[in-house]
Nucleic acid binder design. Structure first.
Lengths: 130, 130
DNA sequence: ATATATCGGACTGTTTCAGTCTTGTATGCT
DNA sequence: AGCATACAAGACTGAAACAGTCCGATATAT
């Protein structure tokens, strides 16, 4: 379907939320205000943290804050952090072997298209979501 | 995973094949030469036909030919013909109602990104695959 | 201490995807 | 006329991905 996963969608919403507020927000706050499942969002924020986009504070009065400026967080980065693989076709993937390898006649042009799309998503950042 | 379906991948390969050969090709020919399941490819070609990209001849010595010039067939068109929905997020879809409608805070920018990606895929045609 | 929050993994139901199978229809060739 | 070829069309299946839930553990401010 060529669609971003809900994880990415919710991740973007959460990052936008953090950027707008500026300070520390809890998962509960973000999930309530944006109508997102608490448990699901919690996992997403953990992944974003591992990626270095946000940092966390445990315990009472804890939560998450941005670690980067909004304009430093591109959609590409969010996608890479939250989706296992990100390649238009099997033959443009770095992690997979093309099952039709020898026979794959569209690899070259697909790679170019992939690159163009990546740089497009690289040019859009959380700052544009504000 | 933000990946084109196998249907689109095979569709592109098949259209490239038809463009290269110029004349009539059977499903069997295309599937054999490109290592694609016959049955699956057959369905794909039927869909491409319904979309007006190719035309078919039944019976002995039948098969498929292009109905359009390769440069007239964009990747967008192939995707639209073969994938049920094509929108980055639920909120940029024309056919769906956004389940988080009122709360959706990223709709605008996502629509822009969607447009940019569409026009990118619109600028690449079968002619570029030759 | 305790309430608040993140951390982390297991688990489940649903949907999508890729591929197969079967039956029917059209048509060129002998 | 009969047959082999090739498209037409839809039902069906197994596997994978997705979205979401649940539970127990850890850290920390008050």
């Amino acid at each position: 379907m060529l669609r971003l996963s809900k994880k990415v969608e919710y991740g973007l919403v959460a990052l936008q939320h953090l950027a707008k507020r500026g300070g520390v927000s809890t998962v509960r706050e973000i999930s309530d205000e944006n109508g997102i499942s608490y448990d699901l969002l919690a996992k997403i924020l953990q992944e974003l943290k591992r990626n270095g986009m946000i940092c966390s504070y445990q315990g009472v009065r804890g939560g998450y804050t941005l670690m980067l400026a909004p304009q430093e967080i591109s959609i590409t980065r969010v996608v890479d952090a939250l989706e296992t693989d990100n390649s238009l076709t099997e033959c443009t993937s770095s992690s997979e072997c093309c099952s039709r390898e020898e026979a794959c006649t569209i690899k070259g042009p697909m790679r170019e298209l992939q690159t163009a799309m990546s740089s497009l998503m690289n040019s859009v950042t959380i700052a544009q979501l504000l």
